[in-house]
Design a protein around this nucleic acid. Structure first.
Lengths: 121, 121
DNA sequence: CGCCTATGTTGACACCCGTCGATACGGGTG
DNA sequence: CACCCGTATCGACGGGTGTCAACATAGGCG
């Protein structure tokens, strides 16, 4: 809490070459892998978070200002709450530039998700 | 409730050719699409459910008896509860054969998940 | 027919989660 | 410096969720 750094679940190592988990169809998941994958799916298991994530992901340049994506039908604190969840799950990163805060899709997130689903080629 | 048929969220139309939702990165998700995708992710957002699903998915023949997958560290009623959730989400189907009940991955589920992640080749 | 095994359902409990209003903080701008 | 705007945090509230023990149901078998 004293640090602004958030303790994140190791869902994704931002710079890692190896995806976080084996494909979901490749065999029985270990407890640890299941927990990592569950944390990621949990972060995407809310419609508001899903819309926020898709808005960031589909934004030109791969980043979006909070002010550009916050009209999702809930209050501003709630938007902030959901963005925090997505950050803590390792799906988004944020950066303050002057007055505004920009969110980006964390690198390798989509690749990691693909790996989970066994989508080679 | 009187019928054994469960009222399912329209996450996946089992026989549908068209996947349930547009790719997550293709643009801003509509409210309805976000809710469908969220329901699916929510079903996979629990480690126990994820392990059950992966055990069914990785089982030879694409189906597994409950008795073969229930040792995931929770009680039998809890296993049954999670399998029900996966059924209601449209991810698994079940079929009773004599004494045992077999679960299968619902057709097109993996394809639909792939579509969400925009994984064409 | 009565029992035994496999699976599902019920009810209770503790805990987590999404939401909001109020408030705090950070940083331009006049 | 004082104000205002954009964003984050706090505290509270209502509803949802995972878990279990107890019980119910279904089907095979003696």
């Amino acid at each position: 809490m004293s640090k602004s750094e958030v303790v994140e679940l190791p869902v994704l190592d931002a710079g890692a070459v190896v995806p976080c988990c084996p494909p979901i169809t490749a065999g029985e998941l270990s407890q640890a892998d299941a927990e990592r994958m569950a944390a990621m799916f949990k972060a995407l298991s809310d419609p508001v978070r899903l819309r926020l994530f898709s808005r960031v992901a589909s934004h030109p340049g791969g980043e979006a200002c909070v002010c550009d994506i916050s009209d999702v039908g809930v209050s501003q604190p709630t938007v902030s709450h959901h963005l925090k969840k997505l950050r803590e799950a390792g799906l988004l990163t944020s950066e303050r530039r002057g007055t505004w805060v920009y969110y980006q899709v964390a690198p390798s997130v989509l690749a990691a998700m693909s790996a989970m689903l066994d989508l080679r080629t």
